[in-house]
Amino acid sequence: MKKTQTPWEAIGAYLDNRSDKENEAIVKEWLKQSPKNVRQFKEIVDTRYLTQQKTDRYQPNTEKLWGELIERIQPVQKKSKRLLMPYLKYTAIAAAIVLAFLVGKIQHSGENANVGLSQLYSTLSTEPGERSHMMLPDGTKVWLNTDSELKYASDFNQEHRDVYVTGECYFEVAKNARKPFVVHANDLQVKVYGTHFNVKESSKTKQSEVTLVEGKVEVLSPENKSLSYLSPGEKLTLKGDKYRIDKAENPKVLIAWTQGVLVFVDQPFEEVVSYLENWYGVTIQLDQSLHNNHRFTFKVKTESLREVLELISVITPIQYNIDGEKVFIKSKRS
């Protein structure tokens, strides 16, 4: 199938609830080929939905509107990418509409829920070295650290308040005693009704962390098994199937990144390097001899990566080399 060819028959079969696996595969493949195809499909679904709504004053001619849509859909594809989903007004970074094909049943807050063939999601993501924040439809405020992603379904806050995250996110959840707010990460879930907390997962260390700043949260496994309740100032760290709970001396230090500040308090060199990689969007190769030998306490706000490395070199015998997005740090030779 050519990239410019629209699979009208397959799309029509889906919209008329007579789609089979072959048609579904055709539509999936077409959607993967281009963001324009996703935009086109979204417009088709929206128009189809609107033309099927009933009103006391006006009953639309669905066949006519459907035909007009097909005739004008091709010119729409030629518009600038800047027009993609213009009604999503995230100032820091554009949100993308992701079409997720879901078949059968999924786990939703521990209960099986029937879902349709497709569901629209709003996604906010950051690149390495970028940070962003937004407000969800229920009034919850979310900050995304570098190289992170947050996704929520189009029916968010209607019956459920579920979000899906990767990387690191800080939440100030709007209170709603009737609708729990649930954060789904790869290795755990966090269930709250209104509180402030931080969720962080790392593919490098293969562990997840939940830090509670205020209020109360329940941490659960992906299978919906309760692991623990946290009190303000506590941090739960999960690695594999084992977890521990520590008392954070100053939990606000751990979320200083939401204010554009990176704070280190007596942290090992290798951990500092991991944070700097994400903060500046680089890859750092640290000489093995420097592991477990140095600990640092300092703050980064507006300093460049070179300024930070210069600071470290003053208090630690190292030399470094910056080559584009790659950084090499090794012991200074005597």
Rank of each mutant, 00 (worst) to 15 (best):
L227W: 09
T237N: 10
D246G: 12
K151T: 08
T195W: 01
K225C: 05
E209M: 15
Y229Q: 14
K225I: 14
E214N: 11
V219Y: 06
D241H: 08
N224Q: 03
D147G: 04
T237A: 12
G233M: 13
K242S: 15
G194F: 12
L136C: 06
R131C: 01
L188Q: 12
V199P: 01
S226A: 15
T205A: 14
N176H: 13
S132F: 13
E149P: 01
Y164V: 08
A153G: 10
H160L: 11
K239I: 02
P137M: 09
V142Q: 01
V182R: 12
S208L: 00
Y193W: 09
H196C: 05
M135L: 15
T140P: 07
L236K: 07
V210K: 03
E223A: 14
N198I: 02
T140D: 05
L230K: 12
T195S: 12
K141A: 14
F171C: 08
V142Y: 10
K191T: 01
T211P: 06
Y193R: 14
V192T: 12
R178Y: 05
A174W: 05
P222K: 03
E214L: 00
S221Y: 09
F171R: 04
E209R: 14
G233V: 10
S202A: 13
Y229S: 15
S148G: 11
S154T: 08
K179W: 01
E214Y: 14
L188H: 00
N176W: 00
T195L: 12
N157M: 05
Q158E: 09
E168W: 02
D155T: 14
G233Y: 05
E223F: 02
H133D: 15
E168I: 00
K206A: 11
D187Q: 13
K179G: 00
D241L: 09
P232L: 04
D162R: 06
T237E: 07
Q189S: 10
G215F: 03
E172Q: 14
K204L: 12
D187C: 02
N145M: 04
L227G: 13
E168A: 06
V217I: 13
V199K: 02
N186H: 14
W143E: 00
L238V: 09
E223Q: 13
H184A: 05
T146R: 13
T211L: 15
G215D: 05
N157A: 11
E201K: 12
E218M: 09
N145C: 03
T166I: 02
V183N: 02
E209K: 07
N145R: 07
G167T: 11
E172L: 02
S202T: 04
S208T: 09
K225L: 11
K216E: 09
D187Y: 10
P137A: 03
H160Y: 15
V173F: 08
V217A: 00
N145S: 14
K216L: 07
N176M: 03
S228M: 10
E214A: 04
L227H: 09
L236N: 00
